[in-house]
């Protein structure tokens, strides 16, 4: 760079260095909090707890059933009460499994194909077995599961979204 010469070269270097140095400090002191502000995860005040998702007697073995429930979700500055769903399977040993209702490929809603005894996602043709394993298709991991517990014959599930995004 050709600079105007008046000040001695060393003084000039000092001035230019100070200009760049101080400007960078300001940029960093503004930029770092801004990045934290935008990207650091929010502190959640209320978390979704267990919800009552129906009765075990409604579910036959080998026949997954979509149950719906209401749950509270913290959405920014609001707490929303919203409808949710899960596919519940009654296992042979009497336990239950609840799958989150979204295909693990790109988040479409899948359904149970009675004829083929498998979960089918119509979006991009992923198929999952009754245990949630990928049979075929672009999905690369099994269906996501919700925590479940039984109180008598009442089904309780904890509909927490997976951190993976879908």
């Amino acid at each position: 760079m050709m600079y105007e010469v008046k000040a001695t070269p060393s003084r000039r270097t000092y001035l230019v260095g100070a200009i760049y140095g101080l400007t960078s400090l300001i940029a960093a002191a503004l930029g770092v909090p801004a990045l934290i502000y935008l990207f650091h995860p929010r502190r959640e005040t209320v978390s979704t707890g267990w919800v009552d998702a129906g009765d075990l007697v409604q579910i036959r073995p080998e026949s997954p059933r979509e149950v719906t429930f209401r749950s509270n979700r913290v959405d920014g500055w609001k707490i929303r009460s919203e409808k949710g769903s899960a596919w519940v399977v009654k296992n042979d040993d009497g336990t239950i499994t609840a799958f989150s209702p979204w295909c693990t490929h790109l988040g479409c809603a899948y359904h149970w194909e009675v004829a083929r005894r498998a979960f089918a996602c119509p979006c991009h043709g992923s198929w999952f077995s009754i245990t949630g394993k990928v049979i075929t298709g672009p999905a690369s991991r099994p269906l996501d599961r919700y925590e479940t517990r039984l109180e008598g014959t009442r089904i309780w599930i904890k509909p927490v979204r997976q951190a993976r995004g879908i």
């Binding site: 503004l30 909090p33 801004a34 934290i36 502000y37 650091h40 995860p41 929010r42 502190r43 959640e44 005040t45 920014g76 500055w77 609001k78």
Partner: peptide
């Protein structure tokens, strides 16, 4: 008001950005 409360309480560095 609610969203500003959210900025100040839940968003990391939100209090500081509002301060700025």
């Amino acid at each position: 008001y609610n969203s500003l409360t959210y900025i100040m309480r839940s968003v990391t560095a939100g209090r500081m950005i509002r301060g700025l």
